[in-house]
Amino acid sequence: PWQGRSIASSKLRMLEFSAFLEQPQDPETFNKHLFVHIGQSNPSYSDAYLESVDIRQIYDKFPEKKGGLKDLFDKGPHNAFFLVKFWADLSVNLQDDSSFFYGVSSQYESSENMIITSSTKVCSFGKQVVEKVETEYARFENGRYVFRIHRSPLCEYMINFIHKLKHLPEKYMMNSVLENFTILQVVTNRDTLETLLCIAYVFEVSTSEHGAQHHIYRLVKD
């Protein structure tokens, strides 16, 4: 039931995704602030399908050269392509403190045992500025294979970006900057090079009192 209703292709399903800041309070406790978060969901067949977005509407927000979003989509499979609109929660006090930890955690599951590679490209005006590539092996748990990228440190570029964004006095200014800031995550089967998931992330700043929010869309070409 999760196919078409959550971030899942026929080969891989995203279970959880978060980017966070941990601030120690004392030696035994810390505060965890979620900038963005996709929690566990359990869609059923009665739930509506995700809305779709024509991928051509966002091509220029992501790398367009050889191997870019268009090439990836043309290669397929099309059911692996998603757009996530995040409303990021920046309601946190940031200080330059080396004891702070900025991290990203994500989890995936599959019915297949494989080795996955996750490429995360941060883009400014559609051009890649930094890329992180991670390789994960499967763990067999409860009848399926689970992949965990646990507490992957956020890169310096992203930490500086968040700090600079926070220094802007008005939310509309932050959103203006975020209009040209995107992230493209491509999860691939390391051995077959098959695209398992391709997720395009775009951002605004949350105005909610309930923290980070998101919408998920299927990317299609009508």
Binding site: V53, E179, S208
Partner: peptide
């Protein structure tokens, strides 16, 4: 690209794209 430099607000995107969920 045909949509280059076009503000996101002027692109063909679902209405929900601009509606922040208010769920907890």
């Amino acid at each position: 690209s045909a949509v280059e430099q076009v503000p996101m607000r002027k692109r063909q995107l679902p209405a929900s794209f601009w509606e922040e969920p208010k769920l907890t």
